[in-house]
Simulated assay, not measured.
Amino acid sequence: MSPTGGRPDIEGVRRAAWRQRLSRLDTLVSPYVFVSPFFLLFVVVGMFPLAYTAWVSVHDWGLLAGRGDFAGADNYRRVLEDRYFWNALRNTISIFLLSSIPQVLIALGLAGLLDTQLRARGLWRMSVLLPFVVAPAAVALIFGNVFGDRYGLANEVVQAIGLDPIRWHVDTLASHLAIASMVNWRWTGYNALIFLAAMQAVPRDVYESAALDGAGRIRQFVSMTVPMIRPTVLFVVITSTIGGLQIFAEPRLFDTQGLGGSDRQYQTLTMYLWELGWRVRDLGMASAVAWLLFLIIIIFALVNLLVSRRAGTLRGQR
């Protein structure tokens, strides 16, 4: 009411209504404003390069000559007819399986150990992250000496037990194992800390109840801990899949020539892509390989997602 005539204060009501509308607008818009920098950055460094690569992949595009005529699917056809592409795909999948599967399993076990009442737990948790902060070039130098064909530490151990030395840089499976060892050494501790963070969120009283029922540590870990951190396991599996299929630094530095071995026995898809773009200087074919690799990663990620959901459904039915 106004102080003079007893009528409602129209201006005050309007100001209150305006403030209320601003408050509702702020509630609706503010979250999007806060997250907008990420999406803007993602569009600039993620979506635009992806779309531009798709555009380049359907043109005759040289590194020096620039864009040529429209080629359609011709670049993809040339890539799929190239035997080096299929060789690189086999090598990529082989190294990915030899690295990602042991990496996730070892990281799970290591996280389970770090989740127990160890002495100096902070020191152990920090130490597992040290390989991750080491530069890939330093890792390649270390493991290049460990897996040296003549005087490497691994061959010294092999010969000490009476076996013939292994040609780590020549034999296909041996080179894949050596490269996978580099990947596992560098990333296992990082994934273990992710698992550990998820395990720390599991209520402790659940383990106390299980212990009263007679469940041992291993039984608790397999039947309780792993199912309760299943979303985190799925996250690590998918990120390991993406990283494993895009592996470049380790095999590139494992070979001084940079081609993936004398017979390309450990050339990966990213190394094949690099060779097409910077040695052959055919950016059209290189972009086609990039998009094929993108589709392969999507397929592997979807398979991982479906398998994990299927496993969770079957466990829930039991």
Rank of each mutant, 00 (worst) to 15 (best):
W55S: 12
T188A: 01
E81Y: 09
M271L: 13
E11L: 05
I247C: 02
M47E: 07
I297S: 00
G112Y: 08
V222H: 05
L63M: 05
A288Q: 06
A286G: 14
A201K: 03
R121G: 10
G109K: 00
D9C: 10
G5I: 14
G261V: 12
I179Q: 04
I238A: 02
D164F: 14
E250T: 08
R318P: 01
Q220V: 01
Q265C: 05
I247T: 14
A54L: 13
D263M: 14
L110T: 14
I238P: 00
L28D: 12
P136M: 11
R19H: 08
N75H: 10
W187L: 03
P37T: 13
L245S: 03
R14T: 15
W18T: 13
E11K: 07
R21F: 03
T188W: 00
T256S: 14
L118P: 06
L108R: 00
L173K: 04
I101V: 15
H169T: 15
R252G: 03
S287I: 04
I10K: 15
F300Y: 08
G68E: 09
G243N: 11
V157N: 05
A107T: 04
A288I: 08
S209F: 10
A198W: 00
I166G: 02
F195A: 01
L141I: 11
F48R: 10
E11M: 04
M182Q: 01
R67S: 15
W278M: 09
D282H: 14
G189D: 00
D205Y: 09
L276E: 06
V43S: 14
I142R: 09
S57Y: 05
A301S: 15
Y32N: 12
V233G: 07
S127H: 03
N91H: 11
G277S: 07
E81I: 06
T270L: 15
A54C: 03
S30H: 10
L196E: 06
L276N: 04
L212A: 09
F38Q: 07
G122C: 02
L130K: 06
A301I: 13
T4W: 13
T256H: 12
A54I: 04
L196W: 10
A135G: 08
L283Y: 11
A290H: 11
I161A: 15
M199N: 01
R318D: 06
A197H: 00
F70W: 12
T116H: 07
R77N: 05
R83D: 10
